[in-house]
Write a protein that binds this DNA or RNA. Structure first.
Length: 911
DNA sequence: GCAAGGTC
C-alpha cells in the first residue's frame, strides 16, 4: 500500500449475485474475504480491503438482480377505462421500485450512507448502463456526496477485473437514456394497442380460446407481434403455394462395384415439351461418357462455441425442447454450478480461458471421458483451438460446463440432455473437423450433363463426440475419364413443387435473431407469449401455426396497410436507440418523433377498425353477448364527477351513436349528462373551461349534423358540460338527447335510463317540421343525408340503403374518411347489434355471403402475398415413361402410350 | 388485465 491515507469505504454493485461473488473473489484474491447477508436473501455483501491507485479502500461488493425499477403510467391512467388509449402516448409515466425489489433497495441505501465511493459493476451493455443509473438514483438519494465510478470489463477473469478497478471511468448517460427511450416507447405502444384491440374485439366475437373470453387479453407488443408475423407470413406462403409440375431426367448405373445415381445438372424443367425432347435425345443415344472425375478432401467443421440462441435452437432440434423450457433447465444447471451463465450472446472464448482445464474436468465421465482423454493427448492431434463465431457481449463467456457431473439424482431427463449437450458441444468446439474424401463423377449423354458423387469419411474427429450431427457417406463405383457405359435406367420423372414447411422453433429463433427481435434472454419469452395469448400453436414437431385469432389480427392490420406485424418497427427503434447511445440524437428527440408517428398510426388504426372487424369476421361468429356500455366506445376524461367526487366523468359514444358524459364509477355512481342527439362527433380537448369549477373541466369539440340543428347554429362548437354553455343547453332543448335510441325498434336496445328520460323533451323535427319525433327518427329521412329520400329495401344502382345480408336491418351508404380509403363509399348496418360492412364497389361479390363481403376485395385466407412456389421446394418424383435395361431399350410415347413412337413424333400431339 | 428488459 502506498500513501497510507485513511481507508475509504467503496460500495461496489454488480448486476447479479454471481458477478458480485466473482468480482469479490478475484479482487480479494480470496484472502480476507468476509461475507454477510443483505436484506435480500439472494444478494450477499462481500467485504475485503483493497487498494485503488494508492488509495486504501474498504470494499463492499453487493448486487442487484437486473433492473431495480419499472416504468408505469401514473395512477389515474392505470385503469383500462380511465382514458382513451390514444392518451397513453402523452400520459405521464413514472419509474418506481416494485415490491419485490424493495429489500435490495434498502440494502443499497443502508450501505450507500456509509460509503464515500460507488463503483458500478453492471454488465457492459445498454441495459447494464441503465441499471447503473437506477442504482445511482437510489444511492445518491440517501448520500449526495458519493463519488460515482464505473468499472468496465469484458470478461470475469483476473486480468480484466484488476485492470478495470484501476481504470475506473464515468458511467455513460447516453447508453442509459437509449434504454429509457426504449422502455417508454414499448410501454406506450404496447399498452395503447393492447387496450384498444382487446376492448374492441373481445366482446364482439365468440373467440373459442381455452380461456374465459372475458379474461382474454389481445395484447400487442413490438416484439411479440413481429414474432407472430413470421409465423403468419410463412403460413400464408404455404397457403398461397400453387403446386407446379416439373420434369427431370434421372440416370443410374449399376456395376460390379455397386450403384451410382446421377443427377441431371439442369435440375428440373417446368417446360414439359422441352424436357421430353431432351429426354428423347438421351434415350435415342443413351451411351454415357465420363467427362470428369474429381476427388477432393472435404471438411465438416465443428460448431462455434455455444451461445444462448444456439443452445435453444439445438435443444429444440435435437430434443424438441421448447426454448422456454430449455432456458428454465439451463438456469437450474447454472444455479447449481454445472454450466456457465446461460444468457450470453458470446460465441467466442476469450484468449485467457483455460480450455484444457474444462476438458480435464470431464475425463472421468463413463461415456465421453475417453474422448476427453484423447483430446488432451498431444499425440492424438485431435485438439483444435475453437473457432470464433463473431459475437461478443463483453460480459459472459460462451456456455460451457463448469463442474463435472455424471448425472445428479435430482436431475430430470431434460437436465441430463441439456448438460450432455453443453459438454459435448464444448468438447466438439475444441476438436478437429471431420475429414472426408469426396468423389464427383460427371457424365455426358447426348449432350446432357449428369453428375454423381460419393463420400468416404476418413476421420470423424469431433463427430465422435458430437452425436447430434452426422455426415452422410455413400460409396460410388470407380470411374475413369473417357470411360463409356450404358445407363441401367434412364427415366423422365415428374414431380411437383411443394410449399416450404411451417416454421420450426429453431427457424423462428433464427428469424427473430436476424431481425433483431428481442434479446437472447427474452426471445423465448416472446415465443411463449404467442402460445399463452392463443395467437399460435406448436405441433409435436415443434412447428408453429397461427391460430384463427393470431391470423385475424395480423390480417386486420395488414388490410389497413400497416406493417405493425413486421420487424421493421423494431429495427427502426433499434436504429434510433443506437443513435441515442452514440449521441447523434437526443432521447427527447427520439421519443418525440417515434411517439408522434406511433400515435398517428394508432389513431389511423382506430379509424380503420372496420378492417379488424372484417378480418375477425372471417374466422369468428359475432357475439350475442350484450355489449357492455363501455365497449366500442371512445372514452375520454372530461372532469371529476361532482356527484361521487371519486371517479372521472368521461365522454362516451354508445353503439347507436349517442354521446354522453358519464361517471366511471357506474354502477355505484349513476351520474350522466346526455348530449344532443344531433351530434355527429364529439371529442374532449385539452382546453379547460375558465368559468366552471372545480377545475379542470375539459371543453368538448362538438360537431352537429347540419340538417338536425336550426340554421342559425354553427355545426362546429367548442362547448362545456359544466353548466356555463348556453348554446349547448339550447341545442339540447331543441334536439333532445338520445331520443333516437328507443325509436330504432331493436328489441335488445336497453330502455332509456332515468337520467335520459328526464332530459328528453317534446321535439320538433327539423326535417319535416312535425312534432313527436326528432329529425333522427323522421319517417321521411334515411340516415340524415337528405330530406327527400324514402326508404327502400331493394338495392338499386346509386341507392342509399340496402337490406343487411346478416341481420335484415337497413345498411346506410356512407363515405370513408380514413387515410387509406378516403372518399370510398361503403354500406354499414344501422343495427346497433350488427357490424355488417361492405364497400360499395364490392357489392356484387358481396351478395353471395358474408365471408366474401368484406372490404378486402374478396381476399380471404390463403391469397396473401407469398412467392410462387416455382423451384422452391421440389416434391416427390412420379412416373417413369421409358426404361433402359442393359442394352435393350423399351419405350413408348409419353402422350398417347404407343410404343411405336416417342412423343415428339406423336400423330396425336396437337389433338 | 397492457410492453420489453433485466434477473432469482
Amino acid at each position: 500500500m502506498s500513501g497510507g491515507g485513511r481507508a475509504i469505504a467503496v460500495l461496489n454493485v454488480a448486476e447479479k449475485p454471481s458477478v458480485a461473488k466473482s468480482v469479490a473473489t478475484i479482487l480479494s484474491r480470496n484472502q480476507g474475504l468476509r461475507v454477510r447477508e443483505g436484506r435480500s436473501r439472494y444478494n450477499k455483501i462481500f467485504e475485503f480491503d483493497y487498494n485503488i491507485r494508492g488509495q486504501p479502500c474498504r470494499m463492499l461488493v453487493t448486487s442487484v438482480t437486473g433492473h431495480m425499477m419499472e416504468l408505469e403510467f401514473e395512477e389515474r391512467y392505470r385503469k383500462w377505462h380511465s382514458c382513451d388509449p390514444a392518451d397513453l402516448y402523452r400520459a405521464p409515466v413514472r419509474k418506481f421500485v416494485p415490491q419485490d425489489k424493495l429489500d435490495i433497495k434498502r440494502t443499497l441505501e443502508e450501505e450507500a450512507r456509509r460509503c464515500q465511493w460507488l463503483v458500478l459493476w453492471l454488465d457492459c451493455d445498454r441495459e447494464g448502463e441503465n441499471i447503473a443509473f437506477e442504482v445511482i438514483d437510489i444511492c445518491t438519494a440517501v448520500n449526495h456526496r458519493l463519488t460515482i465510478k464505473r468499472a468496465r470489463f469484458s470478461a470475469l477473469i483476473e486480468r480484466e477485473i484488476h485492470a478495470s478497478v484501476q481504470n475506473l471511468v464515468n458511467p455513460n448517460k447516453r447508453f442509459a437514456e437509449a434504454v429509457d427511450a426504449r422502455q417508454e416507447i414499448d410501454l406506450r405502444i404496447g399498452a395503447s394497442f393492447t387496450r384498444f384491440q382487446t376492448m374492441l374485439l373481445r366482446d364482439a366475437f365468440v373467440i373459442d380460446s381455452a380461456t374465459d373470453d372475458r379474461n382474454l387479453v389481445l395484447s400487442y407488443g413490438p416484439c411479440q407481434f413481429p414474432t407472430l408475423g413470421f409465423i403468419v407470413e410463412r403460413f400464408w406462403e404455404i397457403q398461397a403455394h400453387e403446386p407446379e409440375e416439373f420434369w427431370t431426367i434421372n440416370c443410374s448405373h449399376r456395376s460390379e462395384e455397386g450403384l451410382a445415381t446421377f443427377n441431371w445438372t439442369r435440375g428440373h424443367l417446368f417446360d414439359y415439351t422441352c424436357a421430353v425432347i431432351l429426354y428423347e435425345m438421351c434415350v435415342e443415344e443413351p451411351s454415357a461418357t465420363v467427362t470428369k472425375v474429381r476427388q477432393q478432401e472435404k471438411h465438416k467443421y465443428p460448431p462455434h462455441p455455444l451461445n444462448t440462441i444456439e443452445l435453444e435452437k439445438r435443444a429444440s432440434r435435437y430434443f424438441r425442447m421448447s426454448s422456454e423450457h430449455t432456458m428454465k433447465v439451463a438456469e437450474e444447471l447454472y444455479q447449481a454450478g454445472f454450466i456457465s451463465y446461460p444468457r450470453t450472446e458470446t460465441d467466442n472464448f476469450s484468449s485467457g480461458t483455460n480450455l484444457h482445464a474444462i476438458v480435464q474436468e470431464q475425463l472421468e465421465h463413463p461415456v465421453w471421458g475417453p474422448y476427453a482423454q484423447r483430446l488432451l493427448e498431444p499425440g492424438s492431434g485431435l485438439w483444435r483451438n475453437p473457432s470464433n463465431g463473431g459475437h461478443d457481449d463483453k460480459a459472459h463467456p460462451p456456455i460451457h460446463p463448469t463442474k463435472f457431473s455424471a448425472g445428479e439424482n435430482n436431475w430430470s431427463q431434460d437436465h441430463h440432455k441439456l448438460y450432455e449437450l453443453v459438454v459435448r458441444h464444448f468438447l466438439a468446439c475444441v476438436s478437429q473437423p471431420a475429414v472426408g474424401a469426396e468423389t464427383t463423377v460427371e457424365i455426358d449423354i447426348a449432350g446432357e450433363q449428369f453428375a454423381a458423387s460419393g463420400r468416404v469419411i476418413i476421420a470423424k474427429n469431433y463427430l465422435d463426440v458430437y452425436r447430434f450431427e452426422s455426415w452422410g457417406g455413400s460409396v460410388i463405383p470407380t470411374y475413369l475419364p473417357g470411360q463409356q457405359f450404358v445407363p441401367t435406367t434412364l427415366t423422365l420423372d415428374s414431380g411437383v413443387t411443394r410449399p416450404p414447411p411451417l416454421l420450426s422453433e429453431a427457424d423462428l429463433l433464427n428469424c427473430m435473431d436476424k431481425a433483431g427481435i428481442g434479446t437472447d434472454a427474452t426471445m423465448h419469452d416472446h415465443i411463449k407469449k404467442l402460445l399463452d395469448r392463443f395467437y399460435a400453436t406448436k405441433d409435436h414437431n415443434t412447428r408453429f401455426s397461427p391460430t384463427n385469432l393470431g391470423e385475424a389480427l395480423v390480417m386486420g392490420y395488414d388490410d389497413m396497410g400497416y406493417k405493425l406485424w413486421k420487424p421493421n418497427l423494431r429495427s427502426m427503434m433499434e436504429f434510433d436507440m443506437r443513435a441515442v447511445s452514440e449521441g447523434s440524437k437526443s432521447k427527447a428527440e427520439v421519443l418525440e418523433t417515434c411517439l408522434q408517428q406511433m400515435k398517428a398510426c394508432f389513431l389511423d388504426a382506430k379509424l380503420n377498425k372496420e378492417k379488424l372487424f372484417e378480418a375477425m369476421a372471417v374466422f369468428f361468429e359475432r357475439s350475442n353477448r350484450p355489449v357492455r356500455d363501455d365497449q366500442h366506445a371512445t372514452v375520454e376524461v372530461v372532469r371529476l364527477c361532482q356527484l361521487c367526487k371519486q371517479s372521472n366523468m368521461v365522454l362516451k359514444q354508445s353503439r347507436d351513436g349517442n354521446f354522453m358524459v358519464s361517471c366511471l364509477g357506474y354502477p355505484l355512481c349513476r351520474n350522466v349528462v346526455w348530449l344532443p342527439g344531433s351530434l355527429s362527433e364529439a371529442a374532449v380537448t385539452t382546453n379547460v373551461c375558465q368559468s366552471c369549477t372545480p377545475p379542470p373541466v375539459h371543453m368538448i369539440q362538438f360537431k352537429f349534423r347540419r340538417l338536425e340543428i336550426p340554421p342559425n347554429y354553427n355545426v362546429d362548437h367548442l362547448g362545456c358540460i359544466g353548466g356555463c354553455d348556453d348554446i349547448l343547453r339550447q341545442l339540447i332543448e331543441i334536439c333532445g338527447t338520445g331520443s333516437r335510441m328507443p325509436a330504432r325498434g331493436q328489441g335488445s336496445t336497453p330502455l332509456p335510463s332515468a337520467a335520459q328520460r328526464s332530459t328528453t323533451r317534446t321535439q320538433v323535427c327539423t326535417n319535416c317540421r312535425q312534432i313527436g319525433h326528432s329529425v333522427g327518427d323522421c319517417p321521411s329521412q334515411v340516415s340524415g343525408t337528405s330530406n327527400s329520400r324514402t326508404r327502400r329495401t331493394t338495392p338499386q344502382n346509386g341507392e342509399t340503403s340496402i337490406p343487411c345480408s346478416t341481420c335484415g336491418a337497413l345498411c346506410a351508404l356512407r363515405t370513408a374518411n380514413t387515410a387509406t380509403n378516403r372518399g370510398r363509399k361503403f354500406y354499414s348496418c344501422q343495427s346497433p347489434e350488427c357490424n355488417f360492412f361492405v364497400w360499395e364497389d364490392n357489392l356484387d361479390s358481396a351478395t353471395g355471403g358474408r365471408r366474401n363481403s368484406s372490404g378486402t376485395s374478396g381476399r380471404g385466407r390463403g391469397s396473401h402475398g407469398g412467392t410462387r412456389g416455382r423451384g422452391s421446394h421440389a416434391g416427390s418424383h412420379g412416373s417413369t415413361f421409358v426404361s433402359v435395361t442393359g442394352d435393350a431399350i423399351t419405350g413408348r410415347c409419353y402422350a398417347c402410350g404407343d410404343p411405336s413412337h416417342f412423343a415428339n413424333a406423336c400423330p396425336n400431339r396437337n389433338a
